[in-house]
Simulated scan of single mutants.
Amino acid sequence: MTKSYRGLFVGLVTLDLIYLAESAPKNNQKLVAVDYTVAAGGPATNAAVTFSYLGNQATALIVLGSHPMTELIRSDLHKYPVAIADLDPTTDTAPPVSSIIVTQNTGERAVISINAVKTQANDDSIPPDILHNIDIVLIDGHQIKVGHTVAQIAKADNIPVVVDGGSWKPGLEKILPFVDYAICSANFHPPNCDSPATVFAYLHNWGIPHIAITHGEQPIEYLSGEKTGTVNVPAIRAVDTLGAGDILHGAFCHYILQTSFADALEKAAIIAANACKHFGTRRWMDVE
């Protein structure tokens, strides 16, 4: 039987309203969706759900609060299940809402959201002993102050830290010195970086030993120590690519505790590719 691990996922939670349609709407156009679903979203949150689905215990360190809309998020995370460590439980501000349109024939998605711009927490709101018995930490960069403090504590306690480099966020450079694994998208562009080679060099100069850059359906490039290589991504017919990177990160957190960097990337890519065969960010788990 595979060992169960405990993961802490630090960053963004959103309420995702996901529509499947023939195309994204043009100006002044109204569309009727083919399908529709609602789920908790955000990079750290989707990664936590995946980590939990793979047989582990996941905690999301997020700003949620008490607005009525948060009940939809709570019920979704309870179902999968993910524990919630709320950085601001008394706030009645509405959670960030993402509206997503998935194009039916290609699986490509268009997203609009305000992310965590209005829900930034201070590090003094971190629950005490949040890292007790934690095996791995993922930080998505949407809560910079909290992520910075958690990364420092994790590093001091020899807990591996994964950073989700979906896109560059100001302040992320404060977290990078404490990172063991940087898993980035092709849209991750640190200052003065305009190519995979310059991104690898930038992150390597921060002392990060294991770095990967994903390229959608194309092979994943990686640098592990001084070794470079690529990992193939399974060829599929994509129904929905929404959350594929988040799912890959959550699966990576599961596999890296058991195997090598390249092998963990390969296994995580298989999970993410399978998720893309299904509409929304949850149905791939419901049909297994």
Rank of each mutant, 00 (worst) to 15 (best):
K169P: 10
P170V: 10
G171N: 02
L172W: 03
K174N: 15
I175A: 12
L176W: 13
F178A: 12
D180I: 02
D180F: 06
I183P: 01
F188Q: 02
F188I: 06
F188T: 05
H189W: 14
H189K: 12
P191Q: 09
C193M: 12
C193Y: 10
D194C: 08
S195Q: 12
A197N: 12
V199L: 13
F200V: 01
F200H: 07
F200A: 09
A201M: 06
L203A: 11
L203P: 04
W206L: 05
W206N: 09
G207Q: 12
I208N: 09
I208V: 15
H210G: 04
I213N: 01
T214R: 00
G216K: 08
E217Y: 05
Q218G: 00
P219F: 13
Y222K: 02
L223G: 06
L223I: 04
K227P: 02
V231F: 10
N232D: 14
P234A: 08
A235V: 14
I236D: 05
I236F: 05
A238Q: 11
D240P: 03
D240E: 00
G243F: 11
A244R: 07
G245R: 02
I247V: 14
L248S: 06
L248P: 11
H249R: 13
G250Y: 11
A251P: 13
F252V: 04
C253N: 10
C253H: 08
H254F: 10
Y255R: 05
Q258A: 10
S260I: 03
S260V: 04
A262T: 00
A264L: 11
A268E: 02
A269G: 05
A269W: 06
A272G: 04
A273G: 13
A273P: 06
A273L: 04
C276W: 06
K277T: 09
K277W: 01
K277G: 04
F279Q: 07
